[in-house]
Amino acid sequence: MATTMITTIPIRTPMPHPIADGDAAALYRLIAWTSPAYPTGAFSYSHGLEWAAEDGLVPDRAALEAWVGHILEQGAGWSDAVLFAHAYRATAAGDWTALDAVADLATALRATAELALESTQQGAAFLSITRAAWPAPALDRLAQLRAGRPVPLPVAQAAAAAGAVPLPAALAAMLGALAATLVSAGVRLVPLGQTDGQRAIAHLMPVVARTTERALAAPLDDVGTAAPMVDWASMRHETQYTRLFRS
């Protein structure tokens, strides 16, 4: 036995399952918080995709998957994932100074007016709804801490998840919700059929899994993007003639 050679490389589970330990409550919270029915207004933001589609940069499903995948892995998805992980840990440790600093950085780290609006309006809505429907001391503390200052979406989500949902699952769900929001915008803008939209979401799963795993190990200093075209598209969207979306 001792001389048996290991001939296969163990496959790492890309995403822990929140109900693996019988924790259905954690999964239930995630489904509620990331549902399109959760009234944060997610449906009204395209993250610059509306201009990109208008400009011919996203003509079909493959292009939509590539565009959204890049945002998840190299754009705001990545930055928000790192910010989320650090906000989650600060909340779990009761380190409100650190949480406040992450919220400041998350607020400041926006390249355009509409991307800032997208993050802070959804963050404010998420915090207010979650405090009402899923009250928790950490959320009250966050609201008190940030009185009069913005609460970006990943910070509000992380403060809700800390102590209620394991971090890897919460992070994957947050990124999955972003993927679903952007694909849904793409279905309207490219346009695509509903089935193609769901194909895109299915194809983006490995991207979400990879990004989740990478963000869990990332120091806060790794926050940043390689998506200047998204910033440009968002800037151009500000003066787009006909607009369905707020970003």
């Binding site: 990109a52 565009w67 190299q74 993007t225 390689a226 998506a227 075209m229 998204v230």
Partner: peptide, 16 residues
């Protein structure tokens, strides 16, 4: 701004 290897996909990506 973060450009980490591999760089070619970042330059090729339309969102990059």
């Amino acid at each position: 701004l973060r450009l980490d290897e591999p760089l070619a996909p970042l330059f090729a990506a339309r969102a990059g």
